[in-house]
Amino acid sequence: MSSVPSLPRCLCLALPLWLLPLGGAAAPASADLNQAWGALADNRLAEAQRVLGAAPSTRPAQLAWAVAEMTRPPVTEAHRRAAERVFQELARGDDEVGAQAEYLRARLHQLHDVPADETGAAGLYRALAARRPHSHWAQLGLVKLALLELYRRPDPADAAADRLAPAEAALAQIEEPALRRDLHLQIGQAGVALQQPLGRLLPHLVAADRLGGLTSAAREDLIVQIGVLSLRAGQLDQAQAYFARYLQDYPANTRAYTVTQLQEQIRRRRAQESAP
């Protein structure tokens, strides 16, 4: 019934054996790459490079090799330069690996250069966002760029510049909810550090909380922070709601007593306000 021409029986039997070397050659390459990414995920950098070998041939493998090279101890200028050469070459490609490589180039300038080359990094983040605006790495780069702008040294010629504005503008370009959350949070925190009005920074903190997904101390700090700053801003309902949530989620925390006292403070203020 089959339209496939029948093969001689001996060839049919031999085929699987004949294909084995091909399958055998391809599978370990992919498995090796996954093993290397696994090692990188666990920060076993030397192991990742050992698995990849000295001269990996595919673009993802070259990327993985350079990622390990950029961080592996001992940290030297030679390692940094070798990693950047690979990133630069890979960034020419118009694929996911290209976007990752361009992002990592910016990270090299921002975090690995001594002193940090923040201008160079900012330029690379901008270029990546312009070329591949919807790539995750471009979007993440926009968050990092916003951070650089929030905390850059004040330009004496422009001391009164609105530091939050560029970061707020970047929000419009960020599509991924988790990255929007991270940027909202950073704008809020920078707003506190830069002594911006509570009315401007609190909505960013609340937006970060509503987007959800923060863990550990970051979550705990944010809940109590919104409560306290709302109280300072006179937003008693919001303060009360966050304090109640804090006590529900962290009843045994050392801050619980102070939060209870602040709830009492709100109750007193409300009683005073409603008194004739």
């Binding site: 990414w37 696994g38 090692a39 990188l40 995920a41 666990d42 920060n43 950098l45 990742a48 990327l63 993985a64 990622v67 390990a68 950029m70 961080t71 990752q100 990592l104 990270r107 975090l111």
Partner: peptide, 8 residues
Amino acid sequence: PQDAAILG
């Protein structure tokens, strides 16, 4: 080193 882990 977190960049390496994130990429991984």
